[in-house]
Every structure is written in C-alpha cells, then in structure tokens.
Write a protein that binds this DNA or RNA. Structure first.
Lengths: 228, 228
DNA sequence: CGACTCCTTGACAGCGTTCAACAGTAGTGG
DNA sequence: CCACTACTGTTGAACGCTGTCAAGGAGTCG
C-alpha cells in the first residue's frame, strides 16, 4: 500500500516467507508492463489474475458517479494485489507510474485450492487478511483524524515501510494522496508546507516529490496512536 | 453490520448456506449472554473464539488514545464476527443492547484448517472477505460522502438488510451512528431532522429510535452510487 | 419527584473546501 | 535558443459545512 522508492527492484526482505513461496513458483507468473496512468483492471471486471508489483507503483480505487474517488491502497514493489474471493474485482487498479508486474492466472491458483492445496489456501487467506487489516486502519484515519494527522500518519507509514530513507520520493501526485486521505490537494499541500515551516521535514526535487524527515518524533506527536 | 430488529431471533434466510454449515455443527458452539454495554473482547486480546449473534446487536471499534472512536461495523442476529487470521483481535467488541451469542473455540476451527478441512478453510475465507468488502465500502463512505449522504447511505443499507420494514428500530444510539459515520451526534440528529422535514422519513418512538421511510427513491437520490 | 440519559435545536467559530492566481518544470516545435 | 503549452504544486481569500458549546425537552428509573 506504500511506496518502495529507495530501490526500484523489490527487496527480498519485503516479501514474507509465505508470499515468497507463492511467488517463487515462477512457472505460474508472466511479466507485463503498464504505462503511467493505464488501467490494470476495472471495477466489476472478472478477477482472472493475481498481480505482483515488480517495479513502479499501483493505485486501487473506487469512484462515485459524480467523479469523487476513494483510493483504497497504494501497491509497491513486492506487494501482491488483485486477490479476490469473488468472481469480480471491487476496485479499479491503475499504474501510477510506468510499472512492471508479474501476473498469474487466478484459476490455476484457485484450482489448487479446490484440490485441497492447504498452503495455497493459507496464502490467499493471509493476503486477504492483510488487505483487511490495512482497510481497518484506513477507516480510523478517515473517520477520526484531521488533515494534519492524516498527512502525518501517511508520511510515517511511508517512512516505516521504506525503512527511514534519507529522502523518500513519492511516485504519486498530491491528488492521489488527497483521494487516499479523503481530503483535497490544497489541504495536502498546506499541511506539507506547514510541516516544512516547523522544520519537521523538507520538500525537495521536482514537484516536491521528495521528502526528507528531520524530526520523526515530532511528526509522530501529530498522529494519535490507535490503542486506547 | 446492520441491525435485525423486525425479528429478535435470526431468520434462516439471513445466513448463507456456507455460514449455516459452519454454524449448524452446534457441538462446537456454546451460548453466552452479554449485558448492554459489556465488552465481548478487547483490542489486542487473544482471538480464542468465534462469535455469532443470536439476539441483540454488537459494535466493533477501535479507539484513539484521546478517546476518539471509529466503529467498524454493527453485527446483527445471524452475523458471525471475531474471525481473525492472526492471534489477536484488531477491534474491540461490545454488546450494544442485551445480547445472546453463540461462541466457538477458535482453535477447534483452526485445527480443522490445519488438518486440511477445505470447507472450513473456505468458510473462514468467505467470512474474512465479506468483512473486507464491507470495510471497502465503508472507506468510500468516510472518504467521499458528506453528512447527509452518509446518513442516507446508512439508512438505505439498514432498510435493505431489514427487507424494508414499516418501521425500523435502531438498537444503537446516535453517538454510535456518529462514530460509525465519522461525524457527530449533532450532525446525525440534524440530518435526520432535515430528512423528516422533507417528508422522506418519520422519527417515531422513544428516543426516536424508530424510523419510517416514506420515500426510498428520494433518499436514494441523496447518496451517490459507487459505480463510475 | 429528582437525577440521569438520550436526543434535538440554536448560535457561533473554525477547519477545510472552493475558487482563483501564480510559480516552477517538462515537453514541443519553430 | 526561446516561445508556447501543459501539467503539477503552492498560496491566498472567501465561503460554507460541520464541529463545538450550550440549553432544553422527553423519557426512564430509583
């Protein structure tokens, strides 16, 4: 759901043992490239494949009839997405930047489930559960947090997943962040500027896609941890 | 996630075949009663049991350190909840009113998974997937909808699940609705009053817990459907 | 009856959205 | 090389939705 930018290729450490096992059987997987902005699968489309990001980044989202959009997750190198229990996808998936994926026929995977392939079944359950856990935390963020807290939580999560790089380079635009956090580009921009004024971070590079965190503990103070 | 109020006992039609199969094996299940407001399980507590609502209603939620609360779901008669893939619960569960549950030892269920009980594994996957699907729709509601749309969506979902009763009686308080929708009691109250002024619904009964929908299509106009 | 809880309503302020203008960069073509 | 366009992000100003605070009504319970 977050970005791997410090390295373009996925790092083995980011793939759990179980996922590794699932992905290791390369006979199942096929390589596919998607250009920036192109659709990987649509909402209510048949869920015929399972995807793993190798390079680049993916956003999954739902859209309301009047154009409003809610991004459910960002998928980064190593992440597996598109695993559904039903016949169709409930989200639309697009490449945020030029992206390389591995895709696997879903039927071949589910055929193994039907045959009683317990490890395969467990893998699917783990993947779905991980997705659920992320969605649950996202609910709290959308329902309880104000705009500064949302941005802080977003940055900290990103920072954690990238293992605190010196500079994290966001592959997504401000409007993607806004639609992920349930706010607007202007609010995202103002929050980042505000944090920069407080010397908590620096915005660097083209379009300020790069972010340097100077004071992670101050940033953490801005977001309320989940346990009561 | 919504309330069964027209009948106190669960109706068979509300339990899918698969869930029925899981629940039918009563040898596994034990009956437990919870008083209004009492805790069924806590956040980060060991997930030793699986629960099915027989009578009453349950809320599951997370709380931030300063007291803010996000209700993830309401569980009604027939609903199974507390199924986790990990060792601990990620939500806290409380009885909204006096509630009767059936509980099953989780280990006995997961023992069957480990032994290669494919139907049992599928049941768990279906349950988790159903929870995920609800959470995904909830994300859109929290991230994209304004207060009137949230209330309208809430009411319509409730109405659908109750199969359009003449009067639906909410087991939850306004503050529960507010924390479910990411808003406040006052906003919930104002939205309901506003819809009543427009003759779309009537509030009846003690504490206005009863709601009669007069014009479901007008109410549906208030909420934007998900497909683009 | 009094105390309590829950809900509603009003007044007001503030956060965040909306609208608008502008800066910086990349890409294109003369 | 520069002009032009397109795109992204930033910032300012004004508005409005929603949160906050406060008061009061209605029902419940001891």
């Amino acid at each position: 759901m977050f970005i791997q930018v410090s390295a373009n290729e996925i790092a083995a450490k980011h793939v759990s043992g179980q996922l590794n096992e699932l992905a290791r059987q390369r006979a199942l997987w096929r390589k596919v490239k998607y250009r920036e902005g192109s659709e990987i699968f649509g909402e209510a489309e048949p869920a015929d494949y399972v995807y793993q990001v190798r390079q680049g980044a993916v956003r999954t989202y739902k859209r309301l009839c009047d154009g409003r959009r809610q991004i459910g997750a960002f998928h980064l190198p190593g992440d597996i997405f598109g695993v559904e229990d039903g016949e169709v996808h409930r989200f639309r998936a697009e490449a945020i930047v030029d992206t390389n994926l591995w895709i696997a026929k879903r039927r071949s995977l589910f055929a193994r489930l039907a045959k009683g392939d317990i490890p395969a079944a467990n893998h699917v359950r783990v993947l779905v559960t991980r997705t659920l856990e992320h969605a649950e935390n996202h609910l709290v963020l959308l329902g309880c947090q104000n705009s500064l807290e949302k941005i802080a939580a977003f940055l900290l999560e990103l920072d954690r997943r990238l293992e605190q790089p010196d500079v994290m380079v966001l592959p997504m635009r401000r409007c993607d962040i806004a639609d992920y956090l349930g706010t607007t580009v202007e609010t995202v921009s103002r929050a980042l500027s505000s944090l920069q004024k407080e010397r908590i971070l620096s915005l660097v590079g083209t379009n300020h896609r790069g972010i340097m965190l100077h004071d992670r503990s101050k940033l953490a103070d801005r977001v309320c941890p989940s346990p009561s």
